[in-house]
Design a protein around this nucleic acid. Sequence first.
DNA 1: ATGCAAACTTAGGACCGACCAC
DNA 2: GTGGTCGGTCCTAAGTTTGCAT
Length: 622
Amino acid sequence: MFCFLFRGNNQMKMTQGRLFAGLILHTKKKKKSKTAAKTTIPTSSPTTKKGAKEEPQEVWKWWEEEKAEGGVKWTFLEHKGPVFAPKYEPLPDEIKFYYDGKVMRLSEETEEVATFYAKMLDHDYTTKEVFNNNFFKDWRKVMTPEEKKKIKDLKKCNFRDMCEYFKQESEKRKNRSKEEKLKLKEENAAKQEEYGFCIMDGHREKIGNFRIEPPSLFRGRGEHPKQGMLKRRVQPEDVIINCSKDSKIPEPLKGHKWKKVQHDNEVTWLASWTENIQGQIKYMMLNPSSRLKGEMDWKKYETARCLHKCVDKIRANYQEDWTSNEMRVRQRAVAMYLIDKLALRAGNEKEEGETADTVGCCSLRVEHISLHNEKDGKSNVVEFDFLGKDCIRYQNAVPVEEQVFKNLQMFMENKAPGDDLFDRLNTTILNKHLQELMEGLTAKVIRTYNASRTLQEQLDLMTNDDDAVPAKMLSYNRANWAVAILCNHQRAAPKNFSKQMENLMSKIKDKRGQVKEAKKQLKEAKAAFKSEKTQKNKMVYEKKKMAYKRLEEQLTKLEVQATNKEENKEIALGTSKLNYLDPRISVAWCKKWEVPIEKVYNKTQREKFRWAIDMATADFRF
DNA sequence: ATGCAAACTTAGGACCGACCAC
DNA sequence: GTGGTCGGTCCTAAGTTTGCAT
């Protein structure tokens, strides 16, 4: 039996009506009705300064209702369809394109595609040969025969004028008057209001992406063989609409038709179209704050929690398989170990030449690891160096159990660097096996499980009762950091990082000086008060004490900031926070240690994790 | 098994506007 | 006001998983 039960968890049932630092839940009554469990949560908080009062909203507590059966995702769905990219506006006449040094007037379509390139002129992409070749090839496809005849060499094309024009335009946009900005903002809000929401099962829910991707040049990551290709404009004729039969069907643009209108309530998407670069389907779906997404997120973490109950058995199981007579079983067992220990992704096969060359566990090649009997005083060290998702480099040297080491040696025997390490394994085989060990178990669940476990363990380990909130937050961020390291969530170091760091350090130096001075003054005031116990001396002493304390707090804050900054230079904490860490762990931590939830989650994150914020008590354990 | 389509999650970078120091 | 920084949002690419056809 699948161990996940939406209604069966005590931890979750005991939650309502509790007070929580910074967030008061005005729950009327425990309601378990199938209809509406609504309540008002004033989301304003002591930390929201500048009087940015947030409107108290009606909150639908979908997590207190019964979940629909089977594959049915909704019973009623109405929306207005996607918003299409605005149509192309030709450049003003004075903005010229030059070919081979001479002005050349381009047809509208040719000009449009040229502007895509011009807009990227200062980007690294346009220095890449693959990008340029792909662009030029696709650009020529939209040219008129005459243009095609003339424009034969990208190097002879001069887009500078166009590029400068766009820079000017963006500058203009920035310098618009207050009124203009406000007007634009309102127009945007109106569009969001009209197209950005749908009605699903009686509730107005926010859509995640209601705008269709505009035409552009494809920006693949890393050495993508298709970078620079033209991503064509999507028309209503490309779009499938998914909604209720009995809903008001969205209107296509005037003079256009939808590709199809369907009413499939076993999927979550509202509209879809096929993109022309990779032939993949793109979807318009709901925002993470929606019931549909929230329910699935909740379920994801419940599956991961299920794993905790059988993880020991599973680990013992794969360790035993390290010595199996069957090669495929050994490979499977070693792969499971790597996924478990290093939180590697499953690693599907990819079609060569269609995408960048990246790998995950099952698709590792011999060239991606090297074995060291001895390294840095440790034995049986495996050194990994490969490009993972989004071409993020994974570099790690880890000591492993001797049997794993021996197995890896064996898997590499008589193989070329470009050969698969696990030649008898793929993600389908692996996931099939995992499914047999626990219902709902896949490689991804193991990553989620270890990420969330790590957060909980690190929080247990690092949080000090007597710390003030900022120090507690440092502990939290470090726990979060440990997860980001585990999952290899990297980011490009912010530009000017070293300069910013220097500035911060000099600020700290100044502050240290101030603290020292304040301490000296405090000492003097104390001595003065001791020798002469006048009211005035007492006042001065108290004042100095306060000043000293304040400065010291400021110094600590700066130092914490510096530590955080340095540690997070190339580490992204957001990805794990949003996708891997059971929010109830964080909520429970906040409640237990009286840290306002706003310190951990910003407004958007609080909307996404509303279910967890409402549900988890201080004693929640993952 | 193997290939492929579909649907959904996960991911980093671009972009934008609020805020801050000068 | 100006210019820089920062956090948040937007954007869409790139993964995983499952189910179906061959």
